[in-house]
């Protein structure tokens, strides 16, 4: 029973952790790409990494935090333009391959030993080097706050200040997505997802709308990158291809083209993993499955879950089968 409680506690902790919020934010961005516009962006982790590097390096360079965030957003915009200009006029597969490649290039360049002075190479940048200005903004005080089942420091690097701001960002972005997707702008995007030629025939500049969507989702990805590294450290390899796949899994789990799908998906994603890990850890003797293996077993289950969701419930938990986001005949 102790084991069960431990698992439950860790699920509850992960449900509100800034890392979960970061995954949710990245999935909200990807939702604009994939869920609403039908763009196959396989480089969302690249956007996160761009945002994270731009933010961290700006702060270390002595810039104020607002400017650092702004630079991160501009960097993501430029990245989106570089990816979008050659590919958005072509068939969707090309965007997929180019974004996948570009995200890897960002990661490889970021971890390269040539840039150790700037990016910290494969060691990355430790949180203490850029966390300061953000922690200083806290008005939560220095104590320790208990809230329901959760107990954290008020301001420390895994404390309430980080949790509250991360989820505030999630809430604001949900509101934003809800507002723009009910508008005629969102309608054009959904039209493009269904059939871009039809939308073009109605006199809409499809290329421009796809670019706007790519930039917007990418910028949100950059915000996710910042939220992701604030309580932790910046390591290029933590935002690689697997991260993109996890974002996709979270999005599809929750429901693409829905406002709250990405958020619910991110929470469920971590919950499934911890639950499986906890159950495997408790019921399977450790000579059959050791600690490391329960973790890997949980990831195997995540992979299979992704397959099953896409096959049997492509609309995810929250989606409506009738207005499914991707091609189901």
């Amino acid at each position: 029973m102790d084991q069960f409680l431990t698992t439950l506690t860790s699920i509850l902790n992960s449900a509100i952790s800034p890392q979960t919020a970061a995954l949710a934010i990245a999935a909200i961005g990807l939702n604009i790409h994939f869920g609403y516009t039908g763009l196959l962006n396989f480089g969302q982790a690249g956007f996160m990494l761009i945002g994270a590097y731009a933010f961290a390096i700006s702060i270390i360079g002595g810039l104020p935090i607002v400017l650092a965030v702004l630079i991160a957003l501009v960097a993501a915009t430029i990245f989106a333009l570089i990816l979008g200009i050659p590919t958005l006029k072509l068939r969707g597969d090309y965007l997929a391959i180019v974004t996948l490649s570009a995200a890897e290039i960002v990661r490889m360049v970021g971890r390269s030993s040539l840039l150790t002075n700037v990016t910290g190479g494969s060691n990355g940048i430790t949180g203490n080097e850029y966390r300061g200005p953000f922690t200083d903004l806290s008005f939560f005080g220095d104590g320790h706050i208990d809230f329901g089942p959760w107990s954290y420091d008020a301001t420390g690097s895994n404390g309430w200040w980080f949790i509250a701001t991360a989820w505030l960002v999630v809430a604001l972005l949900c509101l934003f997505v809800w507002a723009i997707m009910r508008s005629p702008w969102g309608r054009v995007l959904r039209g493009i997802r269904e059939d871009e030629d039809a939308v073009r025939a109605l006199g809409k500049n499809v290329y421009s709308y796809k670019m706007q969507a790519l930039i917007l989702g990418g910028v949100i990805g950059a915000i996710a990158g910042i939220v992701y590294i604030l309580p932790a450290s910046l390591q290029a390899d933590s935002m690689g291809r697997s991260m993109t796949y996890f974002i996709f899994t979270a999005l599809l789990l929750g429901g693409a083209a829905t406002v709250f799908g990405p958020v619910l998906g991110a929470i469920v994603f971590f919950a499934i993993r911890l639950f499986v890990q906890g159950v495997a850890g408790q019921f399977v003797p450790s000579n059959i499955m050791n600690g490391q293996q329960t973790e890997q077993f949980a990831w195997i289950v995540i992979g299979i879950t992704l397959m099953l969701v896409v096959i049997f419930r492509p609309q995810g938990i929250l989606g409506n089968k009738k207005e499914l986001s991707f091609d189901v005949k």
């Binding site: 309608r187 959904r190 039209g191 039809a198 939308v199 025939a201 109605l202």
Partner: peptide, 16 residues
């Protein structure tokens, strides 16, 4: 026909 099948009829019209 390129009716946008996962949009409602009215949304299709508004898009035009």
């Amino acid at each position: 026909t390129k009716a946008l099948s996962k949009l409602t009829v009215l949304e299709n019209m508004r898009l035009g």
